[in-house]
Amino acid sequence: MQRISNIMNVFCRCVSIGALMTLLISSAQARTLDTAFGDVEIEGEPQRVVTLYEGALDVAMTAGVTPVAAIMTRGGEGVARYLKDRVGDIAIVGTARETNIEAVVAQSPDVILASPRLSREQYALLADIAPTVVPRTEGFSPDAWKGEARLFGRALGHETEVDVAIEEIERRAEDLAESLQDNGQPLGAHLVRWMPQGPLVMSDQLFSTGLLAATGFDVDDGGLVPEGRPHSDPLSLENLAQVDNDWLFMATLNEDGDDALASARESKAFGRLSAVEQDRVVPVDGQLWTSASGPMAASAILDDIEANVLSSQ
């Protein structure tokens, strides 16, 4: 398998017409996907795709397939900001917690790409509408998105594009890790969401914290996050020292991260953090850093790291 996909990648990079031809032929064939709810058969290239998972929307866009419907991002009204322009107008059929089944039926999808946290009851409903692809991901792990992306890529008949994108991300993360190493700055980091009562510490097993780790950061949730949870309860301000580190990535759902930073600075306890004193607080988009996943999200997160960490001395 590995060798075959490697060969395919070589073909693709050379932009060989022959390779493209084989691709078109091979992707048109029926294939069986191994999903969380058993084998799912899909034929050809689905045209009407509904994504009920932000990670699936990202992969579909990577594969060059614009879905007909998607779900809302966290704390937003449409899809996540980093994808908004690329996706354009799209029907919204629910949130990460709730799917409007009738709205999905109305889209008459060829395939439904869903979240690994989809319940069996929901799956039964959706599978009646169209083949429903649910990745096998248990709990949180930083590299789970790659397996999910490959599965969604196969479902869409665009496995190669997705593989290429993942490799591109891996290579870029390695390059960035080297540059950061050369830069010589200390690379301890925490990812938090700031609330006036205290920060929520994000797990070090998330998609975004995994990318921080891949670029050489030493991400640490300090054992504050319970197993299988994305973040801790709001930490008491008295315990803020536990999130003191070289870098503080501060995810906000606000469009303007600087606003959030300014309101956090109103707290004296926040101002005492060494990351704040050394101006190493990076406000980041919570939709991208704490809700999204997939190759395009990864690329946008690496952009954030490059722009905020590499450029600062």
């Binding site: 609330m195 006036p196 009562q197 709001p234 008491s236 759902l253 606000n254 469009e255 959030a260």
Partner: peptide
Amino acid sequence: RAADEIRFWVVGSLSG
């Protein structure tokens, strides 16, 4: 914009 303050205006607190 106010999402982070939701908890506070639904259940009060003296913290922060």
